[in-house]
């Protein structure tokens, strides 16, 4: 197997070196990848959505459907990991050959105080990253990960149980589904207003101004709602994955 894998890898590498000459030079602004579709985004995104961060505009609007299923991927991971790992019976009754090491309750003096100090700032920053994604690097995924990390930090320094008291299993499952539902619900609302799925400009009747302005405002606002939905899902799913993996599905204690 070792030799075979080496041969496969080398063959693939050799095949790829053949095309090196054919690829465009690194950093060439006129290469096809930088010209055809992406230039359209850079030139028109502000005019069409009033979002200066083109990445957010394309992520949440032009290719919003991809992003919705990207949220779906995270959701699937949580449900799948829960389905495989979660155990309902009593940990003590397990008769597996593999024994878990004895539990030593942590006594976090320094890390505990530091965590208590850091976590509020992390969460504020996470909310800022979600909310300010239209103007600066950020958005639902990044902010959601920061929020999730703050909860994981609590679970790592203290006990998994103490974090689970603040964010119970019921809550993170509901929030994971809810975030996905917010995203898809915005898309569905567009359909109720007569547009295509995820066509935010159909929400224009909700906003004031001339029809054209209202359509742009609708896109701008819908993108924020969508990002909030993503933030919900990513935050709770990061903690969900951590807590299932760290406790081996027992949900009683962490690493």
């Amino acid at each position: 197997m070792k030799v075979l894998s080496l041969i496969i890898a080398l063959v693939m590498g050799a095949l790829l070196t053949v095309i090196l000459d054919d690829l465009p030079a690194w950093g060439d602004p006129n290469s096809p990848a930088n010209a055809h579709v992406s230039a359209y985004y850079l030139e028109n995104a502000y005019e069409q959505t009033h979002v200066p961060n083109v990445v957010t505009a394309v992520l949440a609007d032009y290719r919003g459907f991809d992003t919705m299923f990207e949220t779906g991927v995270v959701f699937v991971a949580v449900i799948g990991i829960m389905g495989i790992l979660r155990r309902e019976d009593d940990p003590k009754s397990s008769k597996k050959s593999f024994k878990r090491p004895p539990h030593q309750p942590p006594d976090p003096v320094i890390t505990g105080v530091a965590t208590r100090f850091i976590v509020p700032f992390m969460q504020i920053f996470g909310l800022y990253v979600i909310a300010h994604g239209h103007y600066s690097p950020g958005g639902g995924f990044q902010g959601g990960v920061i929020l999730g990390a703050s909860i994981i930090l609590m679970a790592m320094t203290g006990e998994l149980k103490s974090a689970l008291e603040r964010m119970t299993e019921d809550w993170f499952i509901i929030m994971t589904g809810l975030g996905f539902l917010i995203f898809a619900g915005v898309g569905l609302a567009c359909m109720f207003y007569g547009g295509n799925f995820l066509d935010y400009s159909a929400l224009a009747p909700l906003f004031g101004g001339t029809p054209q302005e209202a359509a742009i405002t609708a896109r701008y606002h819908a993108m924020l709602w969508v990002e909030i939905g993503v933030g919900f899902t990513v935050m709770s799913s990061m903690f969900a994955i951590y807590s299932y993996l760290a406790s081996d599905g027992w949900m009683d204690r962490g690493l």
Binding site: P29, A33, S38, A39, Y41, L42, A45, V54, V58
Partner: peptide, 8 residues
């Protein structure tokens, strides 16, 4: 477009 990196 040439001022900014490719967002896509």
């Amino acid at each position: 477009a040439s001022m900014y990196a490719n967002p896509l």
